[in-house]
């Protein structure tokens, strides 16, 4: 028994070392990045795998920041070929990439994602401005020229036109790209409508305009948006923050909060009327094209009219397509493999 055991252990460790020694040739595209873009990229990958002779790409959901970290780590088969991002690449990330030899990056903007605040259908629909959302959710708000800890307990404390119910908003945690975008597109814009902001320096601006209250009115509900949907369904007084596709799928249970007079619908997000929406994109490593089979074809599939076009299969999954002029530009980029320069950011 023991002899066999020892032999087995020895064989196993030898095998491990042998495998480790062999260089890994990869014939399959690897994609990392945003969990918001994940549902779209996976659909493209599946159709790509089925429609072409290439293997179906492997897609990991690592978050936008985590995706850039892996993507920018270097060139070679150990590193991913694409990264999904729910915000454009940052200058610092672009520089890290360049430092590690990932100088040539092709950017493909695939469409828009609306960020919605929703509540249960059983409750009254709400209309709010971004300034009101800021007053309801910020950590500190200006009162008579001074910054004080947010005293608003009910929506009606923010503005008499809003309902007299307790402020209770379920949203994603700080690690989420959705949260970053919501802060940037809703809170910061709302914040800047107040004259007190002008007196702040850059750090103070960031602190006042980007901090969400922590006294229980804003509940960090985790990354699982389906969970938020269930909670809203059970509690008609609460509001939730998530991507438009979850509102689209749960139209029988939820309604979107009307922001600045615009209700979030597929059409209002596509036309840019609905203010809280962000671009989604995928970045390709040009150095891998020709090394990993199928990369060019995958980009072409993604950029094709049947995928991200106005009536493409991605729209069925809740992606809001690009306006025509942008679509033409990015499609050209993807097909001709035009790389980004630092000036594009």
């Amino acid at each position: 028994m023991l002899k066999k055991t020892l032999a087995l252990a020895a064989v196993a460790s030898v095998a491990t070392v042998a495998i480790a020694g062999a260089a890994q040739a990869r014939d399959q595209i690897r994609i990392v990045g945003s969990s918001t873009v994940y549902p779209f990229t996976t659909v493209v990958a599946e159709n790509f795998g089925r429609g072409t002779g290439f293997k179906t790409p492997i897609i990991e959901s690592t978050g936008t920041g985590g995706g850039f970290k892996l993507f920018c780590a270097g060139v070679g088969t150990d590193h991913p070929d694409f990264t999904n991002a729910s915000r454009p690449i940052k200058k610092s990330e672009f520089e890290t990439c360049a430092k590690n030899g990932v100088a040539e990056i092709v950017e493909l903007r695939i469409g828009y994602d609306g960020l919605v605040m929703s509540n249960s259908k059983q409750a009254e629909p709400m209309t709010a401005t971004r300034a009101q959302i800021f007053l309801a959710l910020a950590k500190e708000i200006p009162v008579d020229g001074k910054w004080v800890a947010n005293p608003n307990k009910k929506w009606s404390d923010v503005d008499a036109s809003l309902p007299a119910i307790d402020i209770e908003v379920l949203g994603p945690p700080p690690t989420s790209g959705t949260r970053d975008s919501f802060v940037e597109l809703a809170l910061e814009v709302g914040c800047e409508t107040f004259p007190e902001v002008k007196a702040l320096d850059k750090a103070g601006h960031k602190e006042k305009c980007q901090s969400i209250r922590e006294d229980g009115a804003f509940v960090e509900a985790g990354e699982n948006d389906n969970l938020i949907v269930q909670k809203l369904d059970a509690n008609p007084k609460a509001f939730g923050i998530f991507g438009f596709s979850f509102l689209d799928q749960n139209g029988d249970k939820l309604q979107g909060v009307n922001v600045e007079g615009v209700t979030p619908t597929f059409e209002t997000i596509a036309s840019g009327e609905y203010p809280v929406s962000r671009p989604l994109q995928i970045y390709a490593k040009k150095a891998h094209i020709g090394v990993i089979p199928g990369m060019k074809e995958f980009l072409a599939e993604y950029a094709s009219d049947k995928a991200m076009g106005a009536n493409g299969y991605l729209t069925d999954k809740g992606l809001v397509p690009l306006p025509a002029d942008q679509a033409v530009k990015y499609r050209k980029n993807a097909v001709e493999l035009v790389t980004m320069s630092a000036g594009d950011i």
Binding site: I19, E46, E60
Partner: peptide, 17 residues
Amino acid sequence: IGMVAFVVDIPNGPLDP
């Protein structure tokens, strides 16, 4: 270690994704 991923193909061996 990257096993939280979208993998369509059925793995054929312990080295396949």
